[in-house]
Design a protein around this nucleic acid. Structure first.
Length: 353
DNA sequence: AAAGCGGGGGA
DNA sequence: TCCCCAGCTTT
């Protein structure tokens, strides 16, 4: 909650941010011309998850077609979504349209100038509501979009991933603490511009930053370490059995995997959910009277979404397969030989040992 | 190919 | 309150 600040700034953070804005801040963006709440609102919604350069042409078409709140509220949803095509996150367009109708019907068509009311509208959260009223009305609210999160996380060396409630609360605290007593709109724009152009995710241009002398992350020598990344999720563990079937020629039996899923379309060992499935397969496909099954050391593979513990079982036929060396979907593979298609990581690591 | 992004909505 | 999702971009 932004409160009235009657004391002078505790530090010169805001002064430096404002001074930078006066020299380098953007003032030529379409929504900065006649920054009415409606125009700023539309721009802020479009700018969620989307960069300025992408937004500009969409914004211009949108404003041409829906120059004011009433035009938007009256439009058919399809007409709104048509202008959103290609921007992504289409619920933004639907919510924008819905909110326009709510303002028309419940607020007599007058755009709410009160942050609490604004936040109740679909598509408008705390940061977006603050940005609209700051930029269009110069109201003293703090924003906290991705750019500002980066600037503050670095300046204060805030540990933790901003998605965590605790980290987010700290960042909001700093965002409010640094607000200037005047020129809030310029300050808000400056924070966004600094985040977008200086305090970038990778290769921040710290030597050009007005905050470089006090930035804790920079003083630590590693601004890129902030904000913290999301903790790696604990991956589900899966187990499977792989058949390493060898013949007397020193070749290994491989199957082509289905086109989708892990190792899609690659050549790999026949894989089974468990030993029972392996035994069934062997009985159906191998005519030898007695087979020796020799377990090999377990191989662990980590994918983006799970960890696979693969139990290889070696079966040596000690015979040379009579005729067919290759069928559709399977073949006998000699280590190092040419192969039309890739090998799964499991097979590659098997042959490296 | 993986992460980031502001808010909505469901668990 | 937490978690996942949407869709496109950037790295």
């Amino acid at each position: 909650m932004a409160t009235t600040r009657i004391l002078p700034q505790a530090d010169n953070f805001a002064a430096q941010v404002l001074a930078w804005f006066d020299q380098y801040g953007r003032t030529d963006l379409p929504w900065q011309q006649q920054p009415t709440p409606y125009r700023v609102w539309v721009s802020e919604i479009m700018l969620q998850q989307t960069q300025v350069a992408t937004v500009i042409p969409y914004y211009q078409r949108f404003m041409q077609r829906f120059p004011d709140l009433d035009a938007l509220a009256t439009a058919a949803q399809d007409d709104v979504l048509k202008l959103w095509e290609g921007l992504g996150y289409y619920s933004r367009g639907r919510n924008l349209h819905k909110a326009a109708q709510i303002i028309r019907d419940s607020y007599a068509g007058k755009f709410p100038h009160d942050i609490t009311t604004l936040e109740t509208l679909p598509g408008i959260g705390r940061s977006t509501a603050a940005a609209i009223l700051s930029l269009s009305q110069d109201q003293p609210h703090a924003i906290l979009d991705g750019n500002v999160k980066r600037v503050l996380a670095r300046y204060h060396a805030v540990e933790g991933w901003p998605g965590e409630t605790r980290t987010l609360q700290r960042l909001w605290g700093y965002a409010e603490q640094h607000l200037p007593n005047t020129r809030n709109a310029a300050y808000t724009q400056s924070m966004m511009d600094m985040g977008a152009t200086l305090c970038t995710r990778s290769k921040p241009r710290c030597s050009e930053c007005p905050l470089q002398n006090d930035c804790q992350a920079l003083l630590q020598g590693n601004p890129q370490a902030y904000p913290g990344k999301r903790a790696a999720k604990v991956l589900p563990e899966k187990t499977a059995v792989a058949l390493v079937l060898c013949n007397a020629a020193g070749e290994v039996f491989l199957q082509k995997r289905p086109p989708t899923g892990i190792w899609g379309g690659l050549w790999s060992f026949p894989e089974f959910a468990d030993n029972t499935q392996l035994h069934i397969w062997l009985q159906e496909n191998i005519t030898h009277t007695s087979l020796t099954l020799q377990p090999l050391p377990t191989m662990t593979h980590t994918f983006s979404h799970y960890r696979l513990h693969l139990q290889p079982v070696l079966v040596d036929l000690n015979t040379t397969p009579s005729r067919i060396m290759e069928g559709s979907g399977w073949l006998w593979y000699k280590a190092g030989s040419e192969l039309a298609g890739g090998l799964s990581a499991a097979v590659r690591s098997h042959f490296q040992h």
